[in-house]
């Protein structure tokens, strides 16, 4: 699955980066933060990813850099792949909580009482895994099978 999401060939294209900076110029997050995709690619090629650098989590994954990269490098998908490596050492706690919510409720964003009330008023049924025991069990089994990563 991993190779299909980002093939070795696509991944290796990163070595053709000319450090032109189109990615940074296209990056909305970089106008508000220190996120520097060009620099990140340079560090990645040099196998020198700073593991405790929070800026990688400032990317909103809008894919503007990837669309505009003149070398056709899958920049956003590579950034997500690098996040996976970084997450093993340093995962922002609020993102961890999101995954815990999925385990608990089947939902990253679980309902509040006001949401349940409004659903009733609008005549909507509650049919997510949160309300179906067998389904919630399946979801928990999938998450627990990946416990070593989380």
């Amino acid at each position: 699955m991993k190779d299909m999401l980002l093939s070795r060939k696509e991944l290796n294209k990163v070595n053709t980066c000319i450090q032109c900076g189109t990615c940074v110029a296209s990056c909305y997050s970089s106008r508000a933060t220190a996120l520097n995709t060009r620099r990140l690619v340079f560090d990645y090629i040099n196998k020198n990813i700073p593991m405790h650098d929070d800026t990688i989590w400032y990317c909103s994954t809008c894919y503007s850099c990837q669309e505009r990269c003149p070398r056709g490098i899958m920049l956003t998908d590579i950034l997500i792949r690098v996040r996976e490596e970084v997450a093993e050492e340093h995962l922002p706690s609020k993102l961890k909580k999101f995954i815990e919510n999925i385990r608990e409720y089947g939902m990253g964003v679980p309902p509040r009482k006001s949401d349940i009330d409004m659903r009733r008023k609008l005549g909507l049924k509650n049919y997510s895994a949160q309300f179906i025991e067998k389904s919630l069990k399946e979801v928990r089994e999938i998450i627990d099978s990946r416990r070593d990563k989380l």
Partner: peptide
């Protein structure tokens, strides 16, 4: 019986 999709930015990133 569906669950969270889950989102690429959070779950795929981890």
């Amino acid at each position: 019986g569906y669950s969270c999709c889950p989102p690429p930015g959070i779950v795929r990133s981890v």
